[in-house]
Amino acid sequence: MKEFELEPGEHVVKQVRKHWFVFLTELLPYAIMAVLPFAAPKLLMLAPPMAIYATFFDFTTPLARAALGVWLLISWTSAWGTFTRYFLNAWVLTNERIVTIKQRAFFRREVASLLLPRVQDVTTNVNGILFSLLGIGNIKVQSAGADVEFTMRGIPHPEQMRDLILKYIPEGDSEKITGV
């Protein structure tokens, strides 16, 4: 780990990212964007007054192909950027602390740690039928005293993550925990 050094005796227990379904929903606008030039002629033909515009999308001329190439290049690069941000956002649970790594944008990265003995409350919630079926939810970890609160949204099986966090909290502090 380059962003944080593991202490002697510390090891990574689990590293999680957003659920793949949440990632796919983030990709959806770019998929629609990529398909649009191919679907547009068919859609325009459904509305007779607009049918004359369907000829713009035949892609037989070099200029039309260049425009299509640029459009697809922008769509692809944007989608790949989304994947990059998805991959660089992570939660790391070690046997001593929780580390959140948030890549909000390029050159905008936050790394924060919360020592497990300071954890006071772990809350999970799963909202909706689809998220319940896929096991997608949110987990919120609050520390004792200070207003430090870690939240990760759209992670797979948040209840398993909660159980792992509770498992690694030192025994002496376990009576304080109110995991839900």
């Binding site: 780990m1 950027g81 990059t84």
Partner: peptide, 24 residues
């Protein structure tokens, strides 16, 4: 085309930098 490709090149270099620096 020059502007689009220049933007693509800069964006790609920045993303590769992040991949190599932060992907553990």
């Amino acid at each position: 085309l020059f502007v689009v490709f220049a933007f693509w090149a800069i964006y790609t270099l920045v993303a590769i930098y992040h991949w190599l620096k932060y992907s553990h």
